[in-house]
Each structure stands twice: as structure tokens, then as C-alpha cells.
């Protein structure tokens, strides 16, 4: 799901691939990234993005959710195991975000995020930290409440994981969560990573069940 054995990588500068179908947006993000990031490739659609990512093996992919030829979901599905993908999106539609994260993205950022916050969030993402916004956390919590109610062996969140996720939804940083729950920020991150893993698993099971129910081979 996220790259790196223990989830942490220390990088002097981050090699980034930008994928967005609007050139003006790519140039804007490139200008905002600053000197800690180096853009090693750009793409205007999902197909090109997958190709560029395979050619350049970047540390981080910043990817629009809605692009031609399959969108960010396709990029996450095909490259999510090998590299860290952050979705940059205008859409906060529930299904879009859950699909993106379930497909293998490490998180998402809204396009109107101010430049300094964007930079900070992308830097943390490149170090292996899942970029979980409060909105995404609340959607994921709702999703787990939903699968808990629907019968079928979906893996539920542990009490601690739920607590962590609820803190993120309430707007706490990982450091604040660690202080509130008397655990290290690193443990908080591990919880978030496990939550993502469960979400991924439940989604896949649900897809299989759906396919079986509807007779899709």
C-alpha cells in the first residue's frame, strides 16, 4: 500500500511525477513545490502517467483524480504498490475518494490547499506518512460503520484504530493524537496504515462478493 518496509524513508529531495490533464495546473504545482522536490516527469492522462512512472520510478506521484484514459484510480491501481501516490482533486465525492484510497493511493489533497500546506503534506507523504485529511478520515469511519452493519466477514476496526481515525476527522495532527492517546506519532502512523490495509481488503472482498452475487465472472 505505502512504499518502504517500515513506512519511513529519508530523502534529501523528492523525485516527483505530476499527472494532470491541465498543463496550467501542472505548471502551478511545479512552481509551488519549491527546492525540496524535483519534477522528473509529467503526464496528461492516466495511460501516460503509468508509463512515465514505470520509466522514472519516482518517490512520489501527484495525480489528478479525473483524467482521461482511466483517471487517478487506474494510476493508483497499477502503480500504488510500487510508489506513493497522492491524489490531488477538486472532487470530495465520497465514492471517488474511497475508490482512490482503496485502489492504492496514500491519500488525497484538495486542489485549493494553500501552497505551504501542500508542500508540507507532500513532503510528509514522500517520507511514507499517509496523507489523511479529516474529510477522508470521516468517510473511512462511515465506510467501516457501513460494512459493520452489512453482514459478511468484513474486518472491523479495532477500538484504538477507530479512536485514531476519529481524532484525524476532528482535525488533530498525528502528534496531537499521539499525545492524547499516550502513544508515539509513529504508532499513530502505523494505525493509519493498518486502517488503510483493512479498507483495501474489505473493498476487495466486497467487489468479489458483488461479482459473485451478480454472476460476473
Amino acid at each position: 500500500m505505502t512504499a518502504g518496509g517500515d513506512g519511513k524513508r529519508w530523502l534529501s529531495h523528492v523525485r516527483v511525477v505530476l499527472a494532470d490533464d491541465h498543463p496550467i495546473w501542472r505548471s502551478g504545482v511545479r512552481a509551488d513545490l519549491g527546492e525540496n522536490f524535483r519534477v522528473v516527469g509529467e503526464a496528461g492522462d492516466a495511460e501516460a502517467a503509468v508509463r512515465v512512472i514505470r520509466e522514472t520510478s519516482p518517490d512520489l506521484v501527484v495525480c489528478d483524480l479525473h483524467m482521461p484514459n482511466g483517471g487517478g484510480i487506474r494510476v493508483a491501481r497499477e502503480c500504488g504498490e510500487a510508489t506513493t501516490i497522492v491524489m490531488l482533486t477538486v472532487s470530495e465525492a465520497e465514492r471517488d475518494l474511497l475508490d482512490a484510497v482503496a485502489a492504492g493511493a496514500s491519500g488525497y489533497l484538495i486542489k485549493s490547499t494553500p501552497p505551504d500546506e501542500l508542500r508540507a503534506a507532500l513532503w510528509r507523504a514522500a517520507q511514507g506518512e499517509p496523507v489523511f485529511s479529516p474529510t477522508l478520515a470521516s468517510l473511512v469511519l462511515g465506510e467501516f460503520r457501513r460494512v459493520a452493519k452489512a453482514a459478511g466477514g468484513a474486518e472491523p476496526l479495532s477500538d484504538r484504530e477507530r479512536e485514531v481515525l476519529q481524532h484525524v476527522a476532528r482535525g488533530h495532527s498525528y502528534r496531537e493524537i499521539g499525545e492524547a492517546l499516550f502513544i508515539s506519532p509513529k504508532t499513530v502512523e502505523n494505525h493509519v496504515r493498518n486502517i488503510l490495509g483493512k479498507l483495501h481488503l474489505n473493498r476487495r472482498q466486497e467487489l468479489v462478493r458483488y461479482a459473485l452475487d451478480h454472476g460476473i465472472q
Binding site: W25, D32, S91, K111, S112, P114, P115
Partner: peptide
Amino acid sequence: LQTLAIIQRR
């Protein structure tokens, strides 16, 4: 939304 986001950045 995209245009509004660009205005806010640029």
C-alpha cells in the same frame, strides 16, 4: 472548482 482553486493559488 479547478478555476477557483487556481485563482486561490495564483
